[in-house]
């Protein structure tokens, strides 16, 4: 039973990722489609960041220390343009905020 679940879910996840890559065989897509797809990364990655930052214990939590940590890291990202510095500033801010406001 569990092996069946592992194989079917693995296949389903692969087919989801393969879907459009598998269908599309030419590079030129309509300008409207190109424009729409240009927002996939912004829209989906924002959804992941927003969920991780504003939800805790399955509820909206506006007092989550991740919110100010994200803002501080955002400033670091603008100034440094470095992913490594952004992660470091974000995590250190989160720990300091948790230590100061337990």
């Amino acid at each position: 039973m569990i092996w069946l679940a592992i194989f079917i879910s693995g296949l389903a996840v692969f087919l989801t990722r393969f879907s459009f890559i598998g269908i599309l065989n030419r590079r030129d897509i309509s300008p409207a489609m190109k424009s729409l797809l240009g927002y996939v990364s912004t829209a989906v990655l924002t959804a992941i960041v927003a969920t991780e930052t504003f939800i805790s214990n399955h509820e909206i939590d506006m007092t989550n220390p991740k919110i100010p940590a994200l803002v501080i890291a955002g400033i670091a990202a603008v100034l440094s343009r470095s992913v490594v510095i952004t992660i470091a500033v974000g995590l250190v801010s989160l720990y300091l905020l948790k230590a100061i406001f337990p």
């Binding site: 990364s41 912004t42 990655l45 924002t46 992941i48 960041v49 991780e52 930052t53 991740k66 940590a69 994200l70 890291a73 955002g74 990202a77 603008v78 470095s82 992913v83 952004t86 992660i87 974000g90 995590l91 989160l94």
Partner: peptide, 12 residues
């Protein structure tokens, strides 16, 4: 949280 921070750095 490092993953969310990285995504934000990419988005900005």
């Amino acid at each position: 949280f490092a993953i969310a921070l990285t995504f934000m750095a990419i988005l900005i």
